[in-house]
Amino acid sequence: MATCKDCKGFFAREDDQDRGDCVMRVTDPRQAYYKAVPVEADKDASKCSSFRKR
């Protein structure tokens, strides 16, 4: 099962390797930005459309 920590967009926290940020590039009709969502490292990512294998 693919998990968040297997994804290129996952960046573990220095103080807690079990948690981290899912960092994504978003381009909307007006601006482009990087977005960070807190996730658990072992969260199931098998249905994540943004998953990119590390």
Binding site: Q31, Y34, K35, V37, P38
Partner: peptide, 23 residues
């Protein structure tokens, strides 16, 4: 505050937004 998605817009230098996306 611990869990809401945050974002950094290209070229920006001041952070913080109320909500999970710019729109």
């Amino acid at each position: 505050l611990d869990n809401i998605p945050i974002f950094i817009t290209d070229n920006s230098q001041i952070m913080g937004y109320i909500g999970s996306a710019p729109h």
